[in-house]
């Protein structure tokens, strides 16, 4: 097990090295950074001076080493536009995104697995058919349409929930949360549902397919022949066996939730990192883009590591060897 984790860690380092190289190359390929920093009327001397000051005349490898060295200390430089340290900006915005992703992941898991099991067991009931038909909407409609429709229905017509922002937040010093106030919960509900819908559908369909598969296996037949109750067969024997492939997909998709949050945050004006990234793209704010890239990759790598460890917990065949 230790060997396995070490191997995965080594792979993670490789991934991070490649991603950091790509983020670094943004500085050189997305326009001239100096142009982005100084105004139209800057003199040639000023430009040269800034180039020298930023170290842009050094060999490319030296620059990359400096980028990685700084990044390891959490320093991604100054935002071109806001002129504040990028890491401060990210840390300010991060709680909003993490809470949004967390809440929508919970929604997607609870409803996805629950409905998946239900539709897998009662595959011919009208409720299953209805759930499956409706779930098609979840996959086929783009996130922003769903978001806007939800805003229109719940915020404009019914006026139950706010349409944008985080609502009331509580500052815990190192973390601002919207999960401690009623107003905050009201605000997070619509964006979280919007974000989770696609994942929920995916998990639902996957769990259902796995469930149908597992219900046909010999050990389920044998469990029935021993007179075990349906509840035990469905939730003890079948569900756990569906989880191994489901964990893989869920792991990858929590990463996707973070990536998709860019659109959702824009639609709901949610002050998270996704919205910040979109604004950075608009203004070619390269340091923010580069940092966001590294940060998302880091999350992906971290989640995948957790998923790999979860395999060990769930499946004794991996844990104990063949």
């Amino acid at each position: 097990m230790l060997l396995f984790i070490l191997k995965r860690l080594a792979q993670s380092f490789l991934v991070m090295a490649v991603v950091s190289a790509i983020s670094f190359s943004l500085f050189n390929f997305v326009g001239d950074p100096v142009n982005n920093m100084v105004g139209q009327d800057a003199t040639r001397e000023q430009r040269v001076e800034i180039r020298e000051k930023l170290g842009l005349n050094d060999p490319i490898l030296t620059q990359y080493a400096r980028f990685v060295g700084n990044a390891l200390q959490g320093d991604f430089g100054l935002s071109y536009r806001i002129r504040r340290p990028v890491d401060d900006l990210i840390m300010e915005r991060l709680p909003a995104t993490i809470e949004l992703v967390f809440v929508s992941a919970i929604i997607a898991l609870v409803f996805g697995i629950g409905l998946g099991v239900y539709t897998g067991i009662k595959r011919n009931s009208w409720i299953s058919r209805a759930v499956l038909s409706i779930s098609l909407v979840g996959v086929s409609l783009p996130t922003f349409i769903i978001g806007i429709s939800l805003i229109y229905l719940f915020a404009v017509i019914l006026r139950w929930l706010p349409s944008s922002g985080r609502g009331g937040t509580v500052d815990l010093g190192w973390w601002t949360t919207s999960l401690l106030t009623v107003d905050g919960w009201r605000s997070i509900l619509l964006p979280a549902i919007t974000l989770s819908l696609f994942q929920m559908t995916l998990i639902l369909r996957l769990v259902r397919a796995e469930m149908l598969e597992v219900m046909r296996t010999d050990y389920i037949k044998f469990a029935r022949a021993r007179g075990l109750s349906d509840r035990s067969i469905h939730f003890v024997h079948a569900l756990r066996n569906t989880l191994v492939p489901v964990i893989t997909v869920i792991g990858l998709n929590i990463g996707a939730l973070i990536a998709f949050s860019v659109i959702t945050e824009t639609v709901f004006q949610w002050p998270g990192t996704g919205l910040m990234f979109i604004q950075a793209v608009n203004f070619v704010d390269v340091p923010i883009m580069a940092a966001y890239l590294v940060f998302v990759a880091l999350l992906f790598v971290f989640i995948n590591l957790i998923v790999d460890i979860l395999y060990f917990v769930v499946d004794p065949r991996i844990r104990l060897g063949g």
């Binding site: 296996t217 010999d218 050990y219 037949k221 044998f222 469990a223 029935r224 022949a225 021993r226 007179g227 075990l228 109750s229 003890v236 024997h237 756990r240 066996n241 769930v314 499946d315 004794p316 065949r317």
Partner: peptide
């Protein structure tokens, strides 16, 4: 019928590789 299965009539299947739930002891 469920009370008959296991308690009064036991069943053994062909393939011992697949008759047991792999995730439970």
């Amino acid at each position: 019928m469920r009370k008959v299965r296991g308690a009064r009539i036991g069943m053994i299947f062909q393939d011992p590789q697949t008759s047991l739930n792999p995730l439970l002891t």
